[in-house]
Design a protein around this nucleic acid. Structure first.
Lengths: 227, 227
DNA sequence: ACTTTTGCACTGACTAGTCAGTCTAAAAGA
DNA sequence: TCTTTTAGACTGACTAGTCAGTGCAAAAGT
């Protein structure tokens, strides 16, 4: 309450063009519905990232999105359903972006390590574009006993699998040592990128994406030790 | 209500040695109080890790700890104060454990990279011992707009600083390349360990601590690429 | 010895408030 | 016409925090 930036609830015009332009799941629905859903995702992702799921009220989400509360329930069965939809869609975007980074490297005839490097960059670009989503994902991923636990598990596996595949190919082609433990290394790499990026966003805003990419790339290429 | 373990309010002898032996902040208080606080920390850390801060009720914490709700407020100003105390103490433990890993390596005459390796192991051991705390820490660290934001910032800096110091010494001694960006690399390393460990705990329970340590160590030593 | 007082630690019913989800009749789109 | 959205009042469950009171061990009083 008492939000000075309360200009948002004048719904005169549908509020500005909306950041997450691409963010909509069910494509079967009318464009009107899609637009409404997009506004709700956008509002929910920011609020939940900041405050957490339980601390965010449906009234807040509706107000921020500039729609009536009833509209939320016209479009989603419940608060958690809205949230799960959000998770599914967001990780879908991330996975697609990682995959296409890998594919493009392959098309250019690049090696597998080069592909990993491209994926690191793609991850950073994604986080740079959707910091709130990433925040929320990390905050919820390792919770147990939550309703959407199973959704998250599936969704995490999708993302990690992309990295595992490239690692596996890299070992087969001899680019990476056979010593490496693929599932563990994949998890570590994803974690490294995730946490480094969130830290960058939260505590080291002045660094550029290239700085961060450089630091991670150095680690990946094992040029940290020695000279 | 209806707690069969209601023997707790017979304070005949100062109650037994207490599980979380090391877990108490304010040492000025009576042993009875310390024991109660320990029980509350223990209960809170698990519940909050599982469900998040907002979704965890004070009644739940009290019930799990086997004390009355009023006792929570007798010992802590508020729900958030209990939580902040928990954070402060937990990160204190982690920092101390990282530091002593580094110190022991130095005493043994080991190099700085060896020290980093020992710190990775210490981190894993910590997470293995207090998985709930780690979960909770990661879930809350990057939230903005929360009451304990400043506590977290301080506490994060403590932990990262330990790693930064060793990295800096390693660069000075020529063990690590001058190319590396110390703050970013420190954050990335911490992240790598944190996420790899949580993933291990949540999704790859069958692996041993040594497996995980090995995978991370390989990354650190840059023996991933090449053969 | 014995009674009374003190103060700490804890108790749990209670208060005042919050929030997900529902419902309505009417308006706006398409 | 048929779908979608609106505004906002309402309900019932749930929850942070309060407070008058209890139990008890040690100290003080007699």
């Amino acid at each position: 309450m008492s939000d000075p930036a309360r200009a948002a609830n004048t719904p005169v015009k549908p509020v500005r063009p909306v950041r997450i332009d691409t963010m909509d799941a069910k494509d079967n629905s009318s464009s009107r519905r899609r637009a409404t859903r997009a506004k709700l995702y956008e509002a929910a992702v920011t609020l939940i990232a900041e405050q957490g799921f339980s601390a965010t009220t449906v009234d807040e989400i509706a107000e921020r999105a500039g729609v009536a509360k009833g509209t939320v329930y016209y479009n989603f069965k419940s608060k958690s359903e809205l949230f799960e939809e959000l998770l599914r869609y967001g990780v879908g975007l991330l996975t697609a972006s990682l995959q296409s980074a890998a594919d493009e490297t392959a098309e250019r005839g690049g090696g597998k390590v080069e592909a990993l490097d491209a994926m690191i960059r793609a991850g950073l670009v994604f986080i740079d574009r959707y910091p709130a989503f990433t925040q929320l994902y990390v905050a919820e991923l390792w919770r147990t006993n939550r309703a959407w636990q199973s959704t998250l598990l599936v969704v995490r596996q999708q993302a990690v699998a992309v990295v595992e595949t490239v690692l596996r190919e890299a070992v087969e082609s001899g680019e990476l040592s056979e010593e490496i433990d693929i599932p563990l290394t994949a998890a570590a790499l994803v974690g490294m990128v995730l946490v480094a990026a969130l830290d960058w966003q939260s505590f080291q805003r002045e660094r550029s994406l290239d700085d961060v990419h450089g630091a991670l790339s150095l680690l990946l290429h094992g040029r940290v030790s020695g000279r």
